[in-house]
Design a protein around this nucleic acid. Structure first.
Lengths: 110, 110
DNA sequence: TCTATTAATCGTAATATTGCAATATAGTTA
DNA sequence: TAACTATATTGCAATATTACGATTAATAGA
């Protein structure tokens, strides 16, 4: 035990859960917000923005990348990270649809 | 180490991360989807819907409740769970705003 | 009261995450 | 080539999560 039983759930449920999980840490929320705030995506100063050590930040970036939320490419000596717009858009659509489904229901018994 | 450094991040970042974290598991995504699908919120059959044992489901429900994503109230012998519309709406607004910010930027260098 | 029924809690094992120091890697520049 | 800079990887300790069997608590009905 201890491992998530991913095989019992749908592809979409697992993908969504993975993205949500990646965003389920304040440091990673902060990283995303910073990447969005900064105009250019050439970012070599994410570490300076966060109250965490460099290896920790690097690990968080890796997780965001694995979840498909950011993209990174080598830019000389630094590495260029930026948000994957389509991934965010997908999340947004899912939640918008959920909200819509909820609004059409009048019953709210709790 | 091993514990998340919540105190270095903003209230909002932590709250968001908590919600996202709660949704960061396929079983909990499935629970939310089921609660939304079912017309009434009198739900005593969540366990039958999922490929997980009763204590496990109960624990997942507790986490969703702690994150403020669902509400529950005692309904005789069963317990009535339903989605907290405002919480979902909040998440939705956050992502809609994020998407908006991303759209206004032309540069997508990666 | 006895017995189902339903859901929470406890205890525990397996696994995952978080964070960092130390180190490695790779490109840049003197 | 050597020193410098930026990021990744490794290894490890502390803690959290996941899952479930066993048990408990609470209510409903015979």
């Amino acid at each position: 035990m201890g491992a998530t039983k991913t095989d019992h759930f749908s592809e979409e449920q697992n993908k969504l859960a993975n993205m949500m999980k990646a965003l389920g840490h304040p440091a990673r929320i902060a990283i995303m917000e910073y990447l969005i705030k900064v105009d250019t995506c050439i970012c070599g100063d994410i570490v300076n923005e966060l109250p965490l050590a460099q290896p920790t930040v690097s690990q968080h970036l890796k997780e965001l990348k694995n979840a498909g939320l950011i993209k990174g490419s080598i830019e000389g000596t630094a590495i260029c990270y930026c948000v994957d717009k389509e991934a965010i858009a997908m999340l947004q659509r899912y939640l918008a649809n959920t909200t819509l489904q909820l609004e059409t229901k009048e019953k709210s018994c709790c």
